[in-house]
Simulated assay, not measured.
Amino acid sequence: MQPLLEQRTVSTSVEGVELDIATMYRAGDLTPIVFLHGFGSTKEDYADIVHYSAFDGHPVLAYDAPGCGKTLCSDLSRVSIPFLVETAGAILDRFGIDRFHLVGHSMGGLTALMLAHANPERMLSFTDIEGNVAPEDCFLSRQVIDYPADSDQAFFDAFIERIWHSPYFSCPLYAASLRHKVRAQAVRGIFTSMVELSDHADLMTKFLSLPCLRMFMYGEQNASLSYLGHLRDNGVALAEIKHAGHFPMYSNPVEMWGRLAQFLADAGMNADMPG
């Protein structure tokens, strides 16, 4: 029987901010797989990995980002993508993880990209699920600029209402849980930094320059993204998930897990020695 996922709280400090990070971990003898969830989500997006035998034997780590889920943060105004990158580094150190397969979705995809760019030698593979690599990817985060509000809570309430009425797969499901998964005071810093990096940090070059194997996963409703051909022409594996938009883990998790398993198998997942 495969080890079960364990929930642990890891206390640490990042840039002087005290954090109690809610983590989800499974031990194993093969190479670790690290998941970074998206905005409005939690580590539980990836808990079903235990039901897919392709991943047996691999340590699994996911955690609630500061401002999200059960993680506690002493100063939510400090949360941003650079802060989340530093948090990821601190958590990896606490779990003693050196080299690993990295998977990030949306906000977590951008965090993962910046982490991978800073530590390319530690990446065995990188799966970017609808993460930001170009300015056009800010369809959620740019709302902090396009829809100004008098307070963090007012913006968040209106944001949730707009998302609920979106025509894309799983948006009402996603919107319904946002108030339970995200602290409103963390939203502005996260969204503002996502826009800033997407507009000015040359994310595409960072992604394409990574030496590890890379996959970009997206829902079929986003098949019109302008850069998909450019990714393919530069050696990035593409995984289009049917019956999905921005949230394949909600709309079509079976295909999402299957495509991830195949990509990691192609990347030599089961031949890698733990780092």
Rank of each mutant, 00 (worst) to 15 (best):
N119H: 01
D272M: 15
L228E: 06
E44V: 02
A237S: 08
L225Y: 07
L4I: 11
N132A: 12
K242H: 12
V14K: 04
C68V: 04
S198G: 12
L102D: 14
P148T: 12
V50N: 01
G69N: 01
P248M: 02
D272F: 15
T12V: 08
I163V: 14
V182H: 14
P3C: 08
Y218D: 03
A184G: 11
S166P: 04
P32I: 04
A184P: 09
P148A: 11
R162W: 14
Y46C: 06
V79T: 10
A27L: 04
M194F: 13
F35T: 13
Y168K: 12
T23G: 03
D56I: 02
P59S: 06
S251W: 00
E86D: 15
P274W: 14
P32M: 04
D272N: 14
V187Y: 04
F207Q: 05
L203V: 11
N252V: 05
P172K: 02
L113M: 07
Y227P: 11
P82A: 06
L4A: 12
L225A: 09
L61F: 00
D150T: 11
E18L: 00
F39E: 11
T42D: 05
L178H: 11
S53W: 09
F39Y: 15
N119P: 02
G219E: 04
H37P: 01
R259W: 06
C171P: 14
Q2W: 00
A175P: 07
V85P: 07
G109P: 06
K70G: 11
Y147F: 14
N252A: 03
S125V: 05
I33L: 08
V60P: 03
F55K: 02
R162N: 09
C171Y: 15
H101S: 13
G28D: 05
S193H: 03
L72Y: 05
Q221N: 03
T192F: 15
V10T: 10
H200L: 14
I145P: 07
V195L: 08
A223P: 03
L178R: 08
L197S: 11
Y218I: 10
E255L: 05
L225E: 09
